[in-house]
Simulated assay, not measured.
Amino acid sequence: MTIGARVRGWFERTGSEALGWTLVVLGILMLVMPGPGLLGMFGGIVLLARHYTWADRLVDPLEAKAMEAAQYGVATIPRILVSVLGIIWVGAVGLVWFLSPQIPEFEILGVGFGPELPAAGWVGAVGIWFSDLIALVLLVYSIRRWR
């Protein structure tokens, strides 16, 4: 048995499950931090569907809803323009996070913020820009598929 076959076998049995759970946990974290949280969670559930029936039952309805939402989002030119403006806005937010300006100090529910942005700097900016790139790719895909 070759090394490639062993690695493939390990990934099919153990690696895909470990990666699936990792993506689900990272997706949950990315819901409140910069990053594509919902896509990470969905990717994790797709991988877990190979091992768990509960995950397999979630994949088809989630995929159907995602396709329905994508088709709805490109049904008219104004919706496409709003999506493009949103992509530009998120890119600008990434630039602000990259530049990491000083902000006033404030508190929400006992959690203090400032004088720096949470996850400020290049790490936060890259996460935001990665989300923006995914949104752009999905918009182009949706336009090509349904328009």
Rank of each mutant, 00 (worst) to 15 (best):
I45K: 09
A66T: 13
I45G: 06
L38I: 06
I88K: 04
G37K: 00
G44P: 03
A66I: 09
P36T: 03
V74L: 01
V74G: 00
L62S: 09
W89S: 13
Y72G: 13
L47A: 01
V59T: 07
P36A: 14
G43I: 07
I28H: 04
A66K: 08
L58I: 06
M41E: 02
R57T: 10
F42T: 10
W54V: 06
P61L: 13
G37Y: 04
G86M: 09
A64K: 08
W89H: 09
L85I: 15
G37M: 05
V74W: 10
P78E: 06
V74E: 04
I28Y: 04
D56Y: 10
M30R: 05
L47V: 00
W97N: 00
S100M: 06
L38E: 04
G91L: 12
D60K: 01
A92G: 11
M67W: 08
L29F: 10
V82F: 13
I28S: 00
L62C: 15
L62Y: 05
V93F: 06
K65Y: 12
S83P: 08
G40P: 02
V90M: 13
W89T: 13
T53G: 13
W54N: 06
L29S: 02
L62T: 13
V46L: 02
L81M: 15
V84D: 07
L85R: 11
A69H: 03
E63Y: 12
V82T: 10
V90N: 02
R50C: 08
K65E: 12
A64Y: 06
A75V: 08
D56N: 09
F42Y: 07
